[in-house]
Design a protein around this nucleic acid. Structure first.
Lengths: 235, 235
DNA sequence: TAGAATATCTACTCATGAGTATGATCGAGG
DNA sequence: CCTCGATCATACTCATGAGTAGATATTCTA
């Protein structure tokens, strides 16, 4: 972008970038566009959509605002692009699982793992928090449709699981909300606390969803009897 | 509020007032303050914090902006008050359950039910979405501490449940994140879709959390064949 | 090597919204 | 009836940030 700067432009800045992208990709408009979107996602992720100005994004790229506008039409479209980047791996997971033969619970678990990883990614925040409130009606409809598609995909897998016996009978709608909600929320706390990798988190969540809180090993009795008093572990 | 307006002022507004609020100044002021906070919560809930101006809130109360500022110091404090109102019932639930004798899983379920209802309330959005990003450092610390308190409360109940055998052994931290996340997310969708009451939603979620997706009745085989044979619950 | 694209910057406009200075109005006490 | 404090409105200030106009530099092409 700043190909005519005299001082060595971004050495040291944008640490995750590895090598300076602007030199190698000088002429590649699409790559630059993606860099803009990626920088926006990082900024939105860190400070939130409303607390991020396009000047911030431009500064992060060591560029000025009009340059950003040269690659994206406006802030809303920028958020939308981040959203698309965020849901892409989830949609891919659905496709990947589409014609597998495994029981639906396992296919669902695979999707949820990808889902969790996507939410924990740098685009996760944008995916999860692209609010209708912040968007024009048209864009809002668009995003809502894409979100609904994912929701329906989860519900379908749940229904199939109940059918094939791999999932306990349940209300698909509420269950899908619960699963997606738990995973979406990762985007809110996987900023401070990075003690686990996205993959580990996703796996842990799937385990929790599948197992449930109530013990399965019929080892003791505290589980069902309503008026029971505390019981020592029988272990 | 608009006590000198000619039209009947707040008949229908601030319904809980009961007796003539104009007698005791002190009490009256407090009621109006609460009305401001409630109106703010409604507005934030509907349009989001950043898309709500204090003029909006004032208009909703049929008042002007300086009047709002007469009751709250600034927008941030207003959000904070909404937050406090949102978490109050949750903290109450923890207290209520504190010295019960029921197994921890049941106490946790009770807390989660109140949690879910709180999130679905009008203050739910403010509770869930009071972001550090939008707040001054001091306020951010304050809110974070209060959220953490709730988180730790859930973890403690989980640990106790594992101890007393009413909860399957699990990672309390991840499990607490999953539970709280699923419930928090209610605030995002319980706007359009009100087909269930908050109580029903909370109950449904607790059922899902407790049971898990994997079937418990040993009815069929698609589930887990390898390491586990199905066991009847010894009730 | 002169244009023609392409890419980027400087320097704006303009709307919005938080927060305030100041004055008007009302009820109550003297 | 008159003043005082509490309450509320009018009419501002001021900062911020989205988006743009127009100039400038760089590279490509003929």
């Amino acid at each position: 972008m700043n190909s005519r700067r005299t001082s060595p432009p971004q050495a040291g800045k944008s640490p995750a970038a590895g090598t300076s992208p602007w030199r190698a990709r000088r002429r590649d408009r699409e790559l630059k566009r993606e860099a803009v979107i990626h920088a926006a996602a990082r900024a939105f992720n860190r400070k939130g959509y409303h607390n991020t100005s396009l000047d911030d994004i431009a500064t992060a790229l060591e560029v000025t605002k009009p340059t950003v506008y040269y690659y994206v039409t406006n802030k809303e479209h920028l958020l939308f692009q981040c959203f698309l980047a965020g849901i892409a791996p989830i949609r891919a997971a659905f496709r990947e699982v589409k014609d597998q033969q495994a029981p639906a619970r396992e296919r669902l678990a695979a999707v949820l793992r990808h889902y969790g990883e996507a939410v924990a990614s740098e685009f996760g925040w944008c995916m999860v928090r692209a609010e209708d409130q912040d968007l024009s009606p048209a864009m809002s409809r668009h995003i809502k449709a894409l979100k609904s598609e994912i929701d329906q995909g989860i519900r379908r897998l749940l229904r199939e699981g109940v059918q094939d016996g791999s999932i306990e009978p349940c209300d698909p709608k509420m269950t899908a909300f619960a699963l997606a909600g738990a995973l979406n929320w990762i985007a809110h706390w996987y900023r401070e606390d990075r003690s686990l990798t996205p993959g580990e988190i996703a796996a842990a969540f799937v385990t929790i969803f599948e197992g449930g809180l109530r013990p399965r090993s019929a080892s003791q009795a505290a589980t069902r009897a309503p008026l029971r008093r505390r019981v020592r572990i029988a272990r």
